[in-house]
Design a protein around this nucleic acid. Structure first.
Length: 567
DNA sequence: GCCGTTTTCGGCCCGACTGTTTTCAGTCG
């Protein structure tokens, strides 16, 4: 029995219990059991007794055992017999939770979205105790909008909204400090909504100014310290603003940066020290509230080093603090191994790209324009590539402060051949191989193409290994584990493409790469000088996988990298 | 349902907002 199926079953049981209106602690016990399994790196076969895991006891352990023995769960089956399936999607509606849905089912027999809609239209909802005319209106509204609302927003779409809001906040003089928080600050590749913390002594005034400056489409909640609105940018997106007093800024920022699991862990830790964390400060044993000047100081208060937002995820980060000093940081980056110029589809010339990298104080850089197959990107023919190679060699003599490698981003063609012959490739310093075509091929064919590149002795790196676009397309679906095994076997680097459109490899695969000791390069794939800045996003994405500096080749000094590429 | 260096019962992170109440339950993050 697959571990993932067991995890999903435990979560499903929790969901059905919620719909039954079960004790919330019992519900969360099943969620915690699912999480305990998920966070344990071992396979089920490797665990002799699951109840030894913290969070799994007799009840949840029995469910797991039954699933392993018979492939089914009588607990889930009983719940499913009792709770209509049609109630499950109702949990997604804003403002409706397990208890209210359970009540609607028990009292009115509502067992589906359609039945709920009809009950709203017939005005039977508002007669139910605990519900009223406003609830009825809201539910109906939610039901109408639900299908058209986007789920999670990819980071490349939210960036624009964040920049706009930052600008608005910057220009309100009553705002003393502000920051985006939430999953965006943690550099998740998608976000459900955006959170902003705003420090001000005049919350009411700031609230009015803020709402007046934004294209607000609707209001979800509007209190004195918390405002939730739907704002119309490219797509409508929900934004939470928390207005706090200046001294509360740091604890509020920490709280609303999350993750939820990280906060739970921190609060438990505080409790064990007889303290209490809230968004307003840390209550000491004697009842006084302590506030902080910085998050560093906040963590220090609990005897912890600064934990960067990027790794505040599953709550285990507080147990991995000894690894924090080894994490890759933006200051460690010594070069960028993937960028384009006007020779192919870039917006800036060779010299402009070089000057931009010099101003970033990089030790080295690689020019990697597209190859001839990619006609839409004006890919270079062997002749143009060799001419560029010569030009780079000349420029390299001229610039003493940076080493300019001559490279290519060569297509792996649909027929599993490579776009350049070996006698061309061997004249280059750095060869990237990547797939830009025939994504729909079956996995065996994709993998055959990858294997050709892996086996070629002149190829150094596989770029954007899965071809995904965050929140838009899945890519060409390679068997990533196999790919990483090959990379290890044939000595290839895999890329962490830092473009917010890609962030490819994804976090789980980067973890796998590090475990298999496959070196990673964090590259911007810049098509214009401004895009060199996405390196910071890539680094934070890498931190989410706990990538260590030593495993990221472009943190290495020039000589070490050169020696590695030559072998 | 799970857990225990206040250990087999009683708590489980903490607080804001809404809509319903007339003091609070439910939902959300």
């Amino acid at each position: 029995m697959n571990k993932k199926i067991i995890i999903r079953t435990l979560e499903k049981i929790a969901l059905y219990m919620e719909l039954k209106g079960e004790n919330p602690f019992k519900v969360s016990a099943f969620r915690k059991a699912a999480q305990a399994l998920e966070l344990d790196p071992r396979s089920l076969a490797e665990m002799d007794d699951v109840t030894k895991l913290k969070g799994i006891g007799k009840g949840t352990g029995d469910v797991i055992t039954e699933l392993m023995d018979s492939g089914k769960s009588s607990v889930l089956e009983e719940l499913q017999a009792e709770v209509p399936k049609g109630l499950v999607p109702l949990m997604k509606l804003q403002g409706l939770g397990g208890k209210k849905i359970a009540k609607l089912y028990k009292e009115l027999g509502i067992d589906s979205a359609e039945a709920l809609k009809q009950a709203c239209i017939d005005h039977t909802i508002q007669k139910l105790p605990g519900f009223g005319p406003k609830s009825e209106d809201k539910i109906l509204q939610e039901l109408m909008e639900f299908d058209s609302r986007p789920g999670r927003h990819p980071i490349w779409k939210t960036e624009e909204a964040v920049a706009t809001i930052n600008e608005v906040l910057e220009n309100i003089k009553e705002v003393s400090e502000y920051s985006v928080a939430g999953s965006y600050r943690r550099t998740k590749d998608t976000s459900k909504d955006l959170d902003f913390i705003v420090a001000t002594a005049e919350p009411a005034k700031v609230k009015d100014l803020l709402l007046a400056a934004l294209p607000v489409e609707g209001t979800i909640a509007s209190g004195t310290t918390k405002v939730s609105v739907t704002v119309e940018f490219q797509d409508p997106i929900d934004i939470d603003f928390r207005l706090v007093a200046p001294e509360e800024f740091v604890t509020a920022l920490h709280h609303f940066t999350g993750s939820k699991d990280h906060n739970v862990k921190m609060r438990q830790l505080a409790k064990s020290q007889n303290k209490k964390i809230s968004e307003y400060g840390v209550e000491q044993e004697d009842g006084t509230i302590r506030t902080f000047k910085s998050e560093e100081e906040f963590f220090q208060h609990f005897g912890l080093p600064f934990i960067p937002p990027s790794v505040r995820e599953d709550g285990r980060e507080t147990d991995r603090i000894e690894e924090l000093p080894e994490l890759v940081t933006i200051e460690d980056i010594k070069g960028d191994l993937h960028m384009h110029t006007t020779s192919s589809d870039g917006a800036n010339s060779l010299k402009e790209m070089i000057d931009a990298c010099r101003s970033k104080s990089y030790e080295y850089m690689v020019i990697t324009d597209h190859s001839q197959y990619l006609k839409v990107a004006n890919g270079l023919t062997p002749e143009r590539l060799l001419a560029q190679n010569k030009e780079i060699r000349e420029l390299n003599k001229e610039y003493k402060d940076i080493e300019i490698f001559s490279g290519t981003e060569m297509d792996i063609l649909p027929d599993a051949s490579l776009d350049f012959d070996d006698d061309i490739l061997k004249q280059l310093d750095f060869v990237i191989a990547s797939i830009h075509s025939s994504f729909q091929q079956p996995q065996e064919q994709i993998m055959e193409r990858m294997l050709t590149a892996m086996k070629n002795p002149y190829v150094h790196m596989i770029a954007h290994p899965t071809g995904r676009i965050v929140g838009q397309r899945g890519g060409y679906d390679p068997d990533v584990e196999q790919l990483l095994d090959w990379a290890k076997e044939y000595g290839k680097i895999v890329e962490l493409n830092a473009s917010p459109y890609r962030l490819d490899l994804a976090v789980e695969f980067l973890e796998m790469a590090q475990e298999k000791e496959v070196p990673v390069a964090i590259n911007t794939d810049a098509h214009a000088i401004e895009q060199l800045e996405v390196m910071a996003i890539g680094v934070r994405h890498g931190q989410k996988a706990w990538l260590k500096k030593e495993n990221v080749v472009n943190t290495w000094p020039l000589e070490k990298l050169k020696a590695y590429l030559k072998k």
